[in-house]
Amino acid sequence: MSTNRMVSTTINGEDMALIIDDRMTLLDALRDRAGLTGTKEGCLSGDCGACSVIMNDRVVDSCLVMAAEAEGAAIVTVEGLADGTELHPLQRRFLEQAALQCGICTPGFLVTAKSLLDRNNNPSAAEIRLWLAGNLCRCTGYDKIIRAVEGASADLRAAKG
C-alpha cells in the first residue's frame, strides 16, 4: 500500500519539501515531484548512469536511491551546474567539443564529471575514462566527451590562476 511522507532536502542549494510516495526512487522524486526532469531514466538498475546526481558529495545513481533517503541530504542535479546564465566549464566544453549527439546521457556525464573535477582538477585521460565508466553513451564513442572533460579541467585550473 502506498504511504506518503514529506522529505526535506536541499536541491541545487535550495531547501525543498517534497511529498513523496514511499515506493519512489530519488529519480522519481526529482522528476515527478521537484519537476527537475534533467535527470534521465535509462535502465532503473544502476547500469547506465543517465540518472547520476551528486548526493552529499558522492555521485549516485538516483534510480537506486529511495526518495525517503534524501531526507536532510544535499543534492546536485544537472540543473544546478550553471551559475545563472553562466554555464559551468563542463557544459561549455561539451557544446564546443560536440560531446553530445542525442543528449540523453549528457546530464549524467556532466554531473559525474563535475564530481571528478571537484576532487581532482587535473585528471589524466585514463582517470577520466575510469571515473566515467559507469555512464553509458551510445552515440559519441566517448572520444569527444573525454576531450571536453580535459578542456573543462584546464579551464578550471586557469580560473584558479
Binding site: 526532469t37 534533467g38 544537472v78 540543473e79 554555464l87 557544459q91 557544446l95 553530445l100
Partner: peptide, 23 residues
C-alpha cells in the same frame, strides 16, 4: 565550420524535453 548546436544549451542544462519529460 563548427558552430555550437542550436539545441545544445537546452541539452546541457537539462531543459530539453524528451519523451518521458512531458506530463
Amino acid at each position: 565550420t563548427r558552430p555550437i548546436r542550436h539545441d545544445g544549451e537546452d541539452k546541457v542544462t537539462g531543459r530539453a524535453q524528451y519523451g518521458a519529460d512531458i506530463s
